[in-house]
Amino acid sequence: MVRSPLTPQERERGERLGRLLREARGARSMVEVAAVAGLSAETLRKIETGRAPTPAFFTVAALAGALGLSMDEIAARCVLVPV
């Protein structure tokens, strides 16, 4: 199955998610946070850098738990508001 190209809005939302996760991670290493979330450090790296702008819900939920973020906070900070 071929995946449709991402829209500019999807890319922007992914970049916002990456920034939020980097900020929440603070001084903790990617390896540490990824291990707590049950993910590979490479997966976290891809999300934080925007190379994986549409991670699965359960991946985001695991990262939220590992970083002490609520899903509501993630949704509020990553949603794009039309101008």
Rank of each mutant, 00 (worst) to 15 (best):
A37W: 04
G65T: 02
G50W: 03
V36F: 11
L17S: 01
R3Y: 10
C78Q: 04
F58S: 07
V60Q: 00
L17H: 01
E42P: 04
V83N: 12
V2A: 15
R22T: 13
M1Q: 12
T59G: 09
T7M: 12
V36W: 12
P82Q: 03
L63A: 05
L80W: 02
A76I: 06
L6W: 07
P82T: 04
S70T: 05
S40M: 03
M1P: 10
A41S: 14
T43M: 09
V83K: 14
S4K: 14
V2S: 11
T59N: 06
G68W: 03
A76S: 13
A35I: 05
V81L: 10
T54W: 07
R16L: 05
M1T: 09
R13D: 05
R3C: 14
E12W: 09
L39P: 00
A61I: 09
T54E: 12
A35S: 14
A64S: 06
S40I: 00
P5M: 06
K46V: 09
R51A: 15
A34K: 02
T49I: 08
R13K: 10
R19F: 14
L69S: 01
E15K: 12
M1E: 11
G65F: 11
S4I: 08
S40Y: 08
R19Q: 14
A37V: 01
G68L: 02
A64R: 02
G18N: 01
C78D: 04
E12Y: 11
R51T: 13
A24S: 10
T43N: 09
T59L: 06
G14M: 01
M71L: 15
A41C: 11
R25S: 06
A35M: 09
A61D: 13
R45Y: 10
A24T: 00
G38P: 01
P55S: 07
G38S: 04
I47H: 01
P55W: 05
M30F: 09
R13P: 03
R28F: 10
E42R: 10
R22K: 13
R3P: 05
E73K: 07
K46M: 13
R45M: 07
E73G: 07
R25I: 02
L20A: 04
A76K: 10
G50Q: 05
E32F: 10
V81Q: 07
A37Y: 01
E48Q: 03
I47S: 05
G26N: 07
S4H: 13
T49K: 14
G65R: 06
P53V: 05
R19G: 11
S70G: 09
L44H: 04
